[in-house]
């Protein structure tokens, strides 16, 4: 395998990781602040993609579509938080898993009822279409570079939000001691709604960005939800930095598995079987990674035990 191809695959792994980070950031934020496991996070991702596809279809503008995705997912998130989620903060994980599992059923079938059973169309905008030549002679899709940029910007923005703003101080205070900040006069329930809507908006943004190069369809949220959970568990639940590192690790591991496993398997099982056996191993690589990380650090890389 040539160095150029290796570099390109490295970039692919990074890019996949950044895409996962967009999804995982909201999930881990919500867990960190409110202690809530939200299985319906994938549905918010789907809502973002559907909103973007609809608006892009009407207006033809990709930027408007992205805004619509942010707005629709944030609104759906706020609505869900006010009606359902806020009753779950004091509950145990089992109730949370079940209630948000129920939300998946409702949101998925509701979306299908509204939009029908066929996938929707959403494409990359003309100004981001096609490849660009990078130094070293790699032809890399412009859109994927843009996704990397957006992901890094979101990571930076979140870091700034948490470390350097009033809202961030409240969020950190809320993570540390809920009763105390309520006693200090911060409207905790408004803060929670805000954080949940923010997490939802991030998921919606991820759905719209990813929807342009994948399939916008009902059920698109579940596979990526599971990957996002793997990411935040590896990183340590509640830690944004953990989510970032975890996302990159998962992205790189998954890509490396897909590329190298079939090659590594060739001497062991022969040319004929290598493709299937290698692919089977590649599809479980990230779960093995997660199990290994948790065996060594039961609360993830950056988690508080």
């Amino acid at each position: 395998m040539s160095t150029v191809l290796l570099l390109e695959q490295l970039l692919n792994g990074l890019q996949f990781g950044v895409m996962l980070f967009l999804m995982a950031a909201g999930l881990t934020l919500i867990f960190g602040v409110m202690g809530l496991i939200n299985l319906a996070h994938g549905s918010l991702y789907m809502i973002g993609a559907f909103a973007a596809a609809s608006v892009a279809g009407f207006t033809g503008s990709f930027l408007l579509a992205l805004m619509a995705a942010l707005a629709a997912a944030a609104a759906a998130g706020a609505l869900i938080e006010v009606t359902v989620i806020r009753r779950l903060y004091a509950r145990d994980h089992l109730d949370q898993v079940l209630a948000t599992f129920a939300l998946i059923l409702i949101l998925s079938e509701g979306t299908r009822w509204l939009f029908g059973s066929f996938p929707l169309y959403l494409d990359v905008p003309a100004w981001l279409a096609g490849p660009v030549r990078l130094p070293g002679g790699i032809d890399y899709p412009r859109y994927r570079l843009a996704v990397i940029a957006v992901g890094l910007a979101v990571a930076g923005g979140l870091a700034w939000l948490i470390a350097g703003t009033r809202l961030g101080i409240r969020i950190r205070a809320g993570e540390a001691d809920r009763e105390m900040i309520a006693a200090l006069g911060v409207d905790i329930s408004r803060l929670y709604t805000l954080v949940f809507a923010l997490g939802a908006a991030l998921a919606g943004l991820a759905g719209a960005l990813v929807g342009a190069i994948q399939s916008v369809q009902v059920g698109m949220g579940e596979p990526v939800l599971i990957l996002a959970f793997v990411v935040i568990v590896i990183g340590g639940i509640g830690s944004i930095r953990g989510a970032f590192v975890g996302a990159l690790l998962v992205g790189l591991t998954d890509t490396a598995g897909r590329v190298f496993m079939p090659i590594l398997m060739q001497p062991l099982v022969g040319q004929q079987q290598a493709a299937t056996v290698g692919s089977a191993l590649a599809s479980v690589a990230i779960y093995v990674l997660m199990a290994l990380v948790l065996l060594v650090r039961p609360a993830g890389l950056y988690g508080r035990a």
Binding site: N12, F16, Q214, P223, V224, T276, S279, A282
Partner: peptide, 12 residues
């Protein structure tokens, strides 16, 4: 090449 069933990203 065999991919994972349900895979959504094909960059690699």
């Amino acid at each position: 090449l065999y991919t994972t069933l349900g895979q959504t990203d094909y960059a690699a």
